[in-house]
């Protein structure tokens, strides 16, 4: 099957991460036809989830569709790269109705638009959000939180490594194994 996908859809970067979980990469324009083919012909009838990985260094978002085949218990993870700056993504809401909600969430959290997806611009979790989408990595949540929600004095860190270095073994550097 994978060879056929490679031939017909130009699928690249096929990795078998573990038995029953394979990742592959496909171009943005072929995504919808590939997913439709997998759903209708190959038995990957279940959309586990869809999410986004933010590669800020490369300037891309990698959208991940996780599809599951109940017959042979196989999971496919389909990766699609799009540009970080305002590039649209193909909507798959007509293949699985639950993709609406994922796409709404991704629009809100990352600012990726899925043209045609229903109720895309409604608020999902963040009501009245007025900043850049908060899950983008250039968004500084700590700074925002301190500005918006205030900071109460008296927080102290009990991070175990620091605590042990300072309190339990004051004479040792902490670098030796």
């Amino acid at each position: 099957m994978l060879e056929r996908l490679q031939r017909e859809f130009g699928v690249t970067d096929i990795n078998e991460l573990k038995p029953g979980l394979t990742s592959l990469k496909v171009a943005r324009d072929k995504t919808e036809t590939l997913i439709r083919e997998l759903r209708d012909r190959e038995g990957y009838t279940h959309l586990n989830f869809m999410t986004v990985i933010d590669y800020i260094e490369d300037g891309i978002f990698t959208i991940v569709y996780m599809l599951h085949n109940y017959d042979n218990k196989d999971t496919l993870s389909i990766h699609v790269d799009i540009g970080r700056d305002g590039e649209d993504m193909v909507s798959i809401h007509h293949l699985w109705a639950q993709a609406w909600t994922y796409q709404r969430e991704l629009r809100e959290a990352y600012g990726i638009r899925f043209p045609g997806s229903p109720r895309l611009d409604e608020d999902f979790v963040l009501e009245g959000w007025d900043q850049i989408p908060p899950m983008r990595r250039e968004f500084d949540t700590k700074k925002f939180s301190e500005e918006r929600f205030g900071h109460r004095e008296g927080r102290s860190s009990e991070e175990p490594r620091e605590h042990m270095k300072v309190n339990l073994y004051p004479n040792r550097g902490g670098d030796e194994q």
Binding site: V125, F149, R152
Partner: peptide, 19 residues
Amino acid sequence: PVNGGMYFDSYNTINQFDM
């Protein structure tokens, strides 16, 4: 609700409830 707890730097969770 006291000082934000583990969500002290969250963008969506308030830090001091008594405000």
